[in-house]
Design a protein around this nucleic acid. Structure first.
Lengths: 345, 345
DNA sequence: TTGTATGCGTTATCAC
DNA sequence: GTGATAACGCATACAA
């Protein structure tokens, strides 16, 4: 297919088709301007040589890249992959490639990735940041690369952002538990350096106070991460509380924690929801698939990603652009982990 | 920081530092060759201007990219993300970026992604293919881009590959169930177009025959995908089997199916493992986290990815290269879904 | 409609 | 130790 070792370039195609280099370029970028006859000749030559355009050269010359990037906060959490899936769909529609990176909660890894992405001159960066106030985010934006914060609202409206109202999410979760008659509730989550955690817990406390329930009956069990293992650990601590002071329900800051707590509790012989009701956050697929299906505060995961991608593309398109903070409304999905006979499944 | 709108280039840095363009390049690529004094001067200029090297230009000139790519088969399956994590770690060590794409089981999407990756001139492609015999894989390889098949062995040794022995995996799963005294077992999985599925089921049948058990007591429940939803559906079909012909155990071709089956069974009032024992495949984190912890055939997920990345790098490094088929040995992890008092947790 | 020429930002080979 | 200079592969303005 290709004679020498080198991968064929436009020049080779031009020679093979007996046209000039510029014409080959034209069939790729403005096919309407070249006559059907020569176009077909060129296309045949491309096929025969196995020509594949060199994207680096294209980008260098055109000055514009065809890739987006998403920097995930936690690669072990399916929630972020669902968000990524939404981004990918939007990228697909715009005929863009998507770079996916993972910071796994570490600011230094995040910085390394962002630096690489700048070197690649990506068209836009979507990110669920370790810390939305970190200076390297602002720097990227200052360079003219659109940045959109996902699942968190950017500090001071410096960027576009797409998120659900986490405070409201915390509210409806605890409100739901209160409606079921619970008067001692655990809130499980951490680290508090994560804004999502802070706000969800804040919502829980708000509504608890508004219901006139005593603050000491809302028991905070801090965790070091939003993981299944930490959920189990919280479960052990919860079991250690003397029976008559022990909460009869728990609100977890995400589904991973809730799943861990659920497992530990069942393993310890508790009945869910009779002895302990549990509500999570995110509504990942595995929440519904747990052996005791998990009630959860649903975020529109794919939609979040899709909307974020649209914002970044809009900003990249240039023209007048106003940063916007898109806020979705979370929704409680009640399942068997909180109600004996759930209406919704 | 930067006066005009353009992002600063080496030329700008050179001007600012009062040196030539070549010297700036030298401080980036062979710092030892430039005197400490001028080096520092150049570095200061870079910092002041906020210079970021243009990777496209670098790649065009150097002829070599600094990125790897992984094309996943199913973005909804945590197994592949764990593999990806392993790849990313290896890429990190080699100072490479990682492109992650998802075919979601569709050959056309896979082809689109591969085409893009060729345009990007990635250094290597790791892929869990829809079909390892597809011609576009061979074409990429023919172009001199190393291809490594992940979680599947490549056809006829045309590529390197890294996988576990799926036949053996199927064997140990069913052997385990037989040891627990089960004499009617369901095997759940599909579509059979997936090699992983074919081989796991094949292993199950092999060992069943070797144990001298009648073939009609190994009941095949085909599924249309390896998903939680399909697992639930299989559960419904299983429940429809007349009680005295109904299997007392099930082997699922992956954990997603097993989780779905588990949920459906518990919901239908079955006790696991007393009424139905279940063993899955992959040992994703959620297997252990299920309310009835799931027995599963463990694949070394991260290791798979890491090893694959090493192979692709080795091949990319040039020199004499022999395609190898790495095969890991799967391992049964027995948990509460098959044994009442599991030794391993 | 097609061909020619120039430059994108970088690296690397030379002279100096 | 440093400075000119020629590619790399492609897109585009302009000439033919």
């Amino acid at each position: 297919m290709v004679g020498n070792g080198r991968t064929p370039s436009v020049k080779d195609v031009a020679a093979a088709a007996g046209v000039s280099l510029g014409t080959v370029s034209n069939v790729m970028n403005r096919p309407e301007v070249v006559s059907p006859a020569t176009r077909e000749r060129v296309e045949r030559a491309m096929a025969e040589l196995g020509f594949v355009r060199n994207e680096s050269a294209r980008q260098l010359r055109a000055g514009t890249s065809r890739t987006l990037a998403y920097v995930m906060l936690d690669g072990g959490n399916p929630f972020f992959h669902d968000v990524a899936q939404g981004i990918e769909l939007a990228a697909e529609d715009a005929d863009l490639s998507l770079f996916i990176c993972t910071s796994n909660g570490r600011a230094d890894r995040e910085a390394v990735h962002l630096d690489r992405l700048m070197q690649q001159r990506v068209q836009g960066v979507l990110i669920t940041p370790v810390n939305p106030d970190a200076p390297h985010l602002a720097e990227i934006s200052r360079r003219g690369i659109p940045v959109v914060i996902v699942d968190r609202v950017g500090a001071g409206g410096a960027f576009c952002s797409v998120a659900v109202d986490d405070v409201l999410g915390g509210r409806i979760a605890v409100e739901h538990l209160a409606e079921q008659g619970h008067t001692r509730v655990a809130v499980v989550g951490g680290p508090e350096s994560l804004g999502q955690v802070r706000e969800r817990l804040e919502g829980a406390r708000q509504v608890w106070a508004e219901l006139g329930l005593p603050a000491e009956d809302l028991i905070y069990l801090p965790t070091e991460a939003l993981s299944v293992a930490e959920g189990r650990s919280a479960g052990e601590r919860l079991a250690g509380i003397p029976a008559r002071r022990r909460p009869t329900a728990a609100f977890c800051a995400n589904d991973l924690l809730a799943l861990g707590l659920l497992q530990q509790s069942i393993g310890a012989g508790l009945r869910v929801p009779e002895d302990l009701a549990i509500v999570g956050f995110d509504d990942i697929e595995f929440a519904a698939a747990a052996a005791v299906p998990l009630s959860s505060v649903r975020q529109p995961r794919q939609e979040l990603g899709r909307a974020a991608a649209q914002l970044v593309l809009e900003e990249a398109a240039g023209g007048r652009h106003e940063h916007q903070q898109l806020s979705f409304v979370p929704e409680l999905v009640a399942r068997a982990s909180t109600v004996l006979r759930p209406k919704v499944f």
